[in-house]
C-alpha cells in the first residue's frame, strides 16, 4: 500500500484496484461472500465460513473468491451466504448451517444448480 497524496492518487488506486478485480473475476468462476457481523457470527457464520473453506480445499477449487462482509440487515436470516457464478446475478442464501453450506458447495458451486429452498425469498 503506497501513500495517497492527492485526489489523482486516490483515483489511480481505485482504477488499479478495479482493473485487478476485473482480472481476478475473469480468472475465477465464482464469488462467495459470508455475512460476518456480530449477528452473523452469533448465528454460526464462522462455522459456515470454515465449512466453505474446507470444501474448497477438499475439492481443490482454486478458482473461487471467498470474502466476508458486515451485516446487510437481514439478521433474522443469518448466517447469510451470497453466491455469484460468473456474471450471473447474486443468489442470497439464508440460515446457512454447515450442512447447508456443504450442499451449496456441492450443488451450486460444482454443478451450477441453485438450491431454491435455501434462498431468502425475494422480498424478505
Amino acid at each position: 500500500m503506497s501513500a495517497v497524496k492527492s485526489l489523482e492518487d486516490l483515483r489511480r488506486v481505485k482504477e488499479e484496484e478495479l482493473e485487478r478485480r476485473k482480472a481476478r473475476a475473469a480468472s475465477s468462476r465464482a464469488q462467495i461472500t459470508v455475512g460476518m457481523g456480530t449477528c452473523g457470527i452469533a448465528a454460526g457464520a464462522r462455522e459456515t465460513m470454515q465449512t466453505i473453506l474446507e470444501a474448497i480445499e477438499d475439492e481443490n477449487l482454486g478458482d473461487i473468491i471467498v470474502s466476508q462482509t458486515g451485516c446487510v440487515g437481514l439478521c433474522e436470516w443469518d448466517p447469510i451466504v451470497e453466491v455469484a457464478i460468473g456474471q450471473e446475478p447474486k443468489v442470497t442464501y439464508g440460515k446457512v448451517s454447515p450442512e447447508k453450506a456443504k450442499a451449496i458447495m456441492r450443488e451450486h458451486i460444482m454443478e451450477s444448480k441453485i438450491i431454491r429452498k435455501y434462498v431468502i425469498p425475494a422480498y424478505a
Partner: peptide
C-alpha cells in the same frame, strides 16, 4: 448503510472501490 453488508470491512481497497 450503503456499504455495510456489501464490502469486506477489513479491506481498505474495497472501501476505496
Amino acid at each position: 448503510l450503503a456499504r455495510a453488508g456489501l464490502i469486506d470491512p477489513e479491506n481498505v481497497e474495497d472501501y476505496i472501490v
